[in-house]
Write a protein that binds this DNA or RNA. Sequence first.
DNA 1: CATGAATGAGGCTTCATTCAT
DNA 2: TATGAATGAAGCCTCATTCAT
Lengths: 219, 219, 219, 219
Amino acid sequence: MPKETFFNINTEKRKLITTAFLREFALKPFDEASISEVVKRLGIAKGSIYQYFEDKLDLFLYLLKESGDIKKNYVGSIERESYPNFWAFFKALYEAGLQFDKESPLHSHFLFNLIKNLQSPTMEHLYKEMLQSTVLAFEEMVKTEIEKGLFRNDISPDTMGFMLYRVGVSIQEQMEFKSIINPKESILNSEPVYKDKNEQLMNMVDDYILLVKPAFDKN
Amino acid sequence: MPKETFFNINTEKRKLITTAFLREFALKPFDEASISEVVKRLGIAKGSIYQYFEDKLDLFLYLLKESGDIKKNYVGSIERESYPNFWAFFKALYEAGLQFDKESPLHSHFLFNLIKNLQSPTMEHLYKEMLQSTVLAFEEMVKTEIEKGLFRNDISPDTMGFMLYRVGVSIQEQMEFKSIINPKESILNSEPVYKDKNEQLMNMVDDYILLVKPAFDKN
Amino acid sequence: MPKETFFNINTEKRKLITTAFLREFALKPFDEASISEVVKRLGIAKGSIYQYFEDKLDLFLYLLKESGDIKKNYVGSIERESYPNFWAFFKALYEAGLQFDKESPLHSHFLFNLIKNLQSPTMEHLYKEMLQSTVLAFEEMVKTEIEKGLFRNDISPDTMGFMLYRVGVSIQEQMEFKSIINPKESILNSEPVYKDKNEQLMNMVDDYILLVKPAFDKN
Amino acid sequence: MPKETFFNINTEKRKLITTAFLREFALKPFDEASISEVVKRLGIAKGSIYQYFEDKLDLFLYLLKESGDIKKNYVGSIERESYPNFWAFFKALYEAGLQFDKESPLHSHFLFNLIKNLQSPTMEHLYKEMLQSTVLAFEEMVKTEIEKGLFRNDISPDTMGFMLYRVGVSIQEQMEFKSIINPKESILNSEPVYKDKNEQLMNMVDDYILLVKPAFDKN
DNA sequence: CATGAATGAGGCTTCATTCAT
DNA sequence: TATGAATGAAGCCTCATTCAT
């Protein structure tokens, strides 16, 4: 939670700062991200950052929450009931994600890099926590589908939940692996992660669904 | 590639150094691993390290190669032809891996932590390279299976290869996520990653195969 | 000397500020006392402090004078003539001090910590000055007693005066040393230094008098 | 405990460093003493200090131990049995102290300033500990004298012990108070605390003994 | 009278690497 | 071959004070 002062400053300046640090954390793991470098680039005093935030972690957590909140605006309204099956719902989440990516590219980059960012020893605790809650959410979805009789019930739902979570990560990672997207580069231009690549992402999602569907669906 | 000097020193000392740094890199990302700390623990001169290796990266790469080579001794002899189907072969790889883990626990830990280790910006290039070759290997396997008519052919083999690679990572990560294994702790005792957990790992592998098999197999 | 502005503000607010800084200076040496921390706790603007006071030292001196003035209200009326001998007078000073401590606990804490507070290099000058006047007062008393033929005259009055001053400090310090009082703790509750320990303090004073009396009294 | 490296460097350089920091800590409380300033003056790299010592505290404790050890060389051989009464013994301690002061002026200054130095919040723990052990030593002396029937037995020995400790502090403080000595100044010239003032110190000691003797002695 | 954002120097500490011995 | 002292940049963070509003 930033200090009040942060919310009192000029909106434009606030955005400048936010932007600069989103970028930094989108490029480097927490422990390697450098406040000093960013303020130098921003041309503001290092002390100022500590007027706004308790410390580096506070700053990071603020960006995390902000990014999460914004993403929720896009993804939060998607509900399972509105879709004929889980996979349609799953795809819808990605489509919403693309909208978010397009309209808040830096927040998107920040979240894109989150897993890597959390590998820093300093972040170990937070990492476990976030993983836990993310996986849990997927587990819940799986359980619901199993109850509906739509997913198989011969494999423990936690393994299936974890796998589903992993699918998400894989998709993103494969896009990068195949050099379809190039985050490091697009960050610098404040361009969306998936700029001009929406279709290719959705194709990849389709592929994954094709692959995973028979593994999850009953029969 | 270490300097000659490294191979001229006492074998025992060489092993001591190797061990200490395997441990360090198994615990921390590259950029946060500290040469200073390790030499202090070893009680040798910091300068010595620079007699043996060009720099930190050189040292790391040496350990990487060594670990890989040793692992190959276990895994390299496993051949697809010896097994009735891909999944039996896949399981056999894990069983060999466990043997490696048991007999070279620190190398195993080093490789276990490799993915996290490579997230450092310094390592970006290397990361891509290694990923490339790993995934490629899986792709080749997939292609072979497709040619044999055993895997489905309606999804691009590279996606399937990548997914297969991902399955491996997921298994390992889920074992840690469920606190079945505790790498940080077992490193300190130089114990294998999967000490007393071999059975549980193989069960997890079975689960994953159960899940993934229908996604890959033809029909 | 504070600026006019300080006396123009709401009495209540003035008291709040006074209180908070008395506390801070009662807990830490001058150079380590932090204006930043106090204003944060107070929830007022940091700039305000500089509207009221020239700088940190000015603020400190104000509190010092205020505390001294208040204490004088208690101690000032005690006169040597009212007591049969010096030691009865000496005890009376302590009893008045206890009253002050009870009714103005924070000012009392501030003065209690004063010696430690003045150890900061910044304060060196002030320290000497205050010491000077304090010791001088004791010297005067000693001289009077000598003139009356009640104190021995074979030791220089300034040594005796200094020693008397020292006795005072020692009593206070020994109370803390023996953990009878716990200033750091009682400050937080705005409790008197000697809360519930009045009797024990006076016993200690008696002990010291017993000890010192033969050293000072003629014969 | 400094690191080995510190004892490996050039004796002369070690002395230079030691000297510079003794000076710094003799002038300022721990929290205000600045490593940065000292190394700048020394013209050595800041990092070097951290090759020699764990941290600031480690450095301080080393100087403390060294100073104490050296002083013990002077004072340690003085034994109560060699003197007809306690006060002769007490004086002898001061005479030995003066020898120490003359031959190791900076260590003497360091110890002279110790009490003030330990007022820093960081040092609170250490302060209490040292006070405890110092006072205890005096208490033991007092008890012995009481057992011998030489000191009065109607006042608790801990009060008497504490008072005795206080006498020591007072003597030193009064010398400074009366401007007979000027530590801040003589530090800069690496001159003994009591340079050319030995006689005056011993006179002061005599005065104090005269004063305190009747307070402690039986009858 | 109040605000509080901005400053920038200064604090301690860590690190990989160099180089003279 | 081995040593380990020296380096100095970089890291995060704190602080009293100023000044425009």
